[in-house]
């Protein structure tokens, strides 16, 4: 079976996020002074073949911990859907 995985990579709590901070400083120029805690990460989408949704999730989590994220600075949350 084939599954689609959406992997949300986000900066770890406690790790400074220069992209988010820069955007946060720019938003008031457009009148959005009410904005706080901007954090920028990335979204990775991929398709994976596996026997079941659980097996697909395990594969994607393995990819995350070994390659797709750097655990020193990033966390990942994984969503897997059958297609």
């Amino acid at each position: 079976m084939r599954f689609e995985a959406k992997i949300e990579v986000s900066p770890r709590d406690g790790i400074a996020n220069p992209e988010g901070s820069t955007i946060e400083r720019a938003l008031p120029a457009l009148g959005f002074e009410m904005t706080h805690n901007v954090r920028v990460g990335k979204l990775i989408r991929l398709e994976v073949e596996a026997e079941s949704v659980d097996a697909a999730r395990l594969l994607v989590e393995d990819m995350c911990s070994r390659f797709l994220t750097n655990p020193v600075i990033e966390d990942a949350s994984v969503e897997v859907l059958e297609i």
């Binding site: 790790i15 220069p18 992209e19 901070s21 820069t22 750097n70 020193v72 600075i73």
Partner: peptide, 17 residues
Amino acid sequence: LTEAGLLPGALQKNVGM
């Protein structure tokens, strides 16, 4: 070297971008 695990830590984007 940090990505390869031969040195500790990581290097991210400069403060101020």
